[in-house]
Amino acid sequence: MNSNWHEEAYYTIRTYEIDSKKQATLPALVKLMHESAMQHVIKLGVSVWDLEPHHISWVLMRQQLSVHRLPRLGEQIKIETYPSGYERLFTYRDYKVYDAAGELIAHSSSTWVLMDTVQRSLARFPGFILEMLQLAPAPELCLPRPAGQLPKMEKTDHSLDFVVRWHDLDYNDHLNNMYYLQWMLEALPDELLNHGRLRAFDIQYRAEAQWKDQVRAEVQHLPNGRMLHRLVRPDDGKELALALSEWE
């Protein structure tokens, strides 16, 4: 794989990234994945700041995560990330997380689009990005792309309400995608949060949440250790995100 196309970043798990079991939380680990990707697109010259003059920006649409184990406090990890192809309006990026012994402990595939920052709608890839995407590795060298439909939520077993604060916003001036994931997890029952082992998380982002929006996180129990999650804006009933998690 072309070395410029492939980013490696090293991190040590810090005290503010762990839970009571002294292991990194899933939101903390995903933040490090996204930080690695941000540093990579800066090097490639296609970061959100490079795209700002073109009035476009990257937006995450879906992310599938598989977790073999979460790293512990003080543990050093390596994150590899690279763009893994594109089709029509969608581009893909993979992440692989290794421990110090070189063992794969988590991996993720993700789907991204470009947003027109003026119209707040999907944008086509400009020529200079299409040229770059032609260099993507062959599909057989990449993780499977996010695919398939998530189940439709039929009832709510647990819920929790939030308000989007100013410090929750990102560079696109909407709710940071990390809070979607974090708020979904917050609404889970105490027993699962304290004693469950998360094995997979698949999240689809459907709509933006803005400053001061009311947001409700809803959870439905499914068979075989699965949980269905949804974020909805109660004021207009708009579904903001849907996710499926798998637990042991």
Rank of each mutant, 00 (worst) to 15 (best):
S47T: 02
R72M: 10
L44G: 01
Q76P: 04
G74H: 03
L51K: 06
K21V: 05
L73C: 10
Q76G: 10
Q23W: 00
S47D: 04
L44F: 01
L60A: 13
R69E: 11
G74C: 05
S20Q: 04
K43H: 12
I42S: 02
M61H: 09
K22H: 14
E52G: 00
K22S: 14
H55K: 15
P53Q: 06
L26D: 00
L51M: 14
E17I: 04
S66R: 14
A37E: 05
P53A: 06
K31C: 05
T25N: 03
R62P: 08
W49P: 00
W49G: 03
M33Y: 00
V41A: 03
Q76E: 15
K22G: 01
D50L: 06
I18V: 15
V41Q: 07
P71T: 13
K21D: 11
L32R: 09
G45K: 01
Y16C: 08
M33P: 01
Y86R: 14
L51G: 05
E17R: 01
M38H: 03
T15N: 09
A24T: 10
V59Y: 12
V67C: 11
V67W: 08
A28G: 06
Q76W: 07
E80P: 00
K78P: 03
R69Y: 05
H68N: 12
V41I: 15
R14P: 00
P71V: 12
S84M: 11
K22V: 07
S20Y: 08
R69V: 07
Y16A: 05
T15V: 14
W49D: 13
P27C: 07
D19A: 10
M61E: 08
S20N: 02
Q63V: 15
